[in-house]
Amino acid sequence: MTDAPILELTDVSAEYGPFRSLFGVSLTIRPGAAVALLGANGAGKTTVARVASGLVSASAGSVTVDGTDMTEARTYEFARAGVAHAPEGRSVFATFTVEENLTLSFRRALGRSRVKAGLEEAYSLFPRLGERRSQTAGTLSGGEQRMLSLSRVLVEKPRLLIADELSLGLAPIVVDEVYETLATIRGTGTALLIVEQHVQHALELCDDVALLDHGTIAWEGPASEAAEVVVTHLFDREGS
């Protein structure tokens, strides 16, 4: 079953208490594919990412990971099925040191014996983290915390990597680095779901694009055709 989609959302709706934010979203990601999730502010990109990693459960529709139905599954089961999610903003354990942050995750994802190697890889990816390995993560600068959060998923090379607001808060030179790494990771068979406000980079990396608008998929197609659609969609919202 190599061709079973790694992630399949079918008609998914999701809500936060009384606030409904997804209205029947369907999305399929095949192994090794790279999908960019675009859309305006508040369109529901983060919510889709959260549903895909089990942080928010779908109130209707179904979620399958690797062919198994996970609609009712807990977040940790998603992680064990090979979904790694770097949430938007500063998603680190603030009272942990840099090293503890990574260790917590690597112990399960890489296995006990490979934690060291994983740490080294993370530090070579972001040398700044290596310099600060015993600093409390909560005192890192905004960008450094983003690096920490990303390095976790980048090193683990999961089956599906979800990165929300990938380049947010990162210096351009670091963004280049991250995209290079993502390209390499793709080569090893990891599927990507990228949420990105800065469209250009995402379009270069990904082959498929899904465009969200007010909680529904407004357009879906290959990245090559996307540029135009995205531009008209994002910038002429009033006009359309």
């Binding site: 990693s53 940790y76 354990f93 503890e100 917590l104 399960r108 006990r112």
Partner: peptide
């Protein structure tokens, strides 16, 4: 032990701990 770190993790953010594949 791994459990010690995980316990602290759950205190701080059960959801982040679950994202790391640990049943909170």
């Amino acid at each position: 032990t791994a459990a010690g770190l995980a316990m602290r993790g759950v205190v701080e953010s059960p959801r982040m701990t679950e994202l790391a594949g640990i049943p909170a």
